[in-house]
Amino acid sequence: MSTLQDDRDRIVELYADTVWCVALSRTGREEAAQEVFQEVFLRYFEKERSYENDEHRKAWLIRTTLICCRRYLSSYYRNIPLPLEEVADLSDEEIDETGALYSALLRLPAKYRIPIVLYYLEELPTEQCLQVLELKPAAFRKRLSRGRELLKKLLKGEDYFV
């Protein structure tokens, strides 16, 4: 028989990576992502909500993560930009293909980074991406394509003109 704690564990296990990934992508810092992560699940468990299905639940969690990130980043002293090397804090041996992509991803402007994370990493269907990002299809496609373009440039070691 499923208990409340079991449900909680299941939800956390199921969506932890998604929430973490979005929070880390949006804030670019682990300590920030850590706070947002906890805040999101705290909110989730705080109040009973009815979800149509798991997709709906996931969309809610992502949307809430983005909102929490925005709130976190809007705080003055937290918003001071860090040097890039701190944003993508990678050791030399980690600069392999994945490491480079990870680093490049975190260097993307947030407006391009989040669509890419949701669409390619989280494999969220376009409809849901549009819903959580509150974007129009054309704008979403544009951000994806622009994000990919910038990623390519970053991976080639080029700077880009935003």
């Binding site: 973490w20 810092r29 850590q34 937290r78 992509l101 990493l121």
Partner: peptide
């Protein structure tokens, strides 16, 4: 796939949330 692995949530955080605990914020920069 590798990138997704790299962006997995830290276990200690997941366990803490499951227990309803809150970790101390690691705000060394802040």
């Amino acid at each position: 796939r590798d990138l997704k692995k790299r962006m997995k949530a830290p276990r200690n955080l997941v366990e803490a949330v499951k227990k309803g605990e809150r970790l101390e914020p690691a705000r060394k920069v802040d």
